[in-house]
């Protein structure tokens, strides 16, 4: 039973990661689809919390995948999710990195490099939308989203500044009964 879950988890995360052009933003909508909608391993609440905690913690934001694995299947899930997300893509990077000189002058590399970024922008927006639907259900949430979005879009400060501000505002609003 547990083994079945781990195999299924590993395959799902592996497939998601190996197609995640642009990193975590490609992973979030797909992993939400799989984990919440297809398999029903977690609810929207747990998904949103895993997202929030992995944003607060230091380190690469793909560790959200590890967090999801841990929530779904405990320590074994943590290990499987982390390995399935990190190892195959890193192996590919290792091979590509060694061939960088041969790859970087080819026609298809420059074409790919030019073609993917617009797709990634669409994926980041999709990621934001899917997460918003899972995590936000009150007007103040949308206000905080808009505030941070504007701050990030218009300034060059570390995003931790508006994120911290949003969190503090949330706590105060919660105390006042608005959140």
């Amino acid at each position: 039973m547990k083994t079945d879950l781990l195999v299924s988890l590993g395959l799902t995360f592996f497939t998601t990661a190996i197609f995640s052009v642009g990193g975590i933003s490609a992973m979030i909508p797909e992993v939400h689809r799989q984990v919440v909608e297809v398999h029903g391993w977690l609810g929207n609440d747990s998904f949103a919390t895993a997202f929030a905690l992995s944003q607060i913690a230091p380190g690469p934001n793909i560790l959200m995948m590890s967090m999801l694995g841990w929530r779904i299947a405990g320590w074994a899930g943590l290990a499987v999710a982390t390995l399935a997300t990190v190892v195959p893509t890193s192996a590919l990077s290792l091979v590509a990195g060694r061939a960088e000189n041969r790859i970087s002058h080819t026609r298809w590399y420059s074409l790919t490099k030019r073609s993917f970024p617009p797709l990634v922008v669409g994926l980041i927006c999709a990621s934001a939308l899917v997460t918003a639907q899972a995590a936000i259900d009150q007007w103040l949430g949308y206000v905080l989203t808009a505030g941070v979005a504007l701050f990030v879009a218009l300034t060059r400060h570390n995003p931790l500044v508006p994120l911290t501000a949003a969190t503090v505002i949330g706590v105060i609003a919660g105390r006042l009964g608005y959140f």
Partner: peptide, 17 residues
């Protein structure tokens, strides 16, 4: 409240990015 606000803020971070 803090977790919900952080999640909402992080969504904003994605849109801004």
């Amino acid at each position: 409240a803090a977790t919900r606000a952080a999640a909402a803020g992080a969504v904003g971070l994605m849109f801004g990015t």
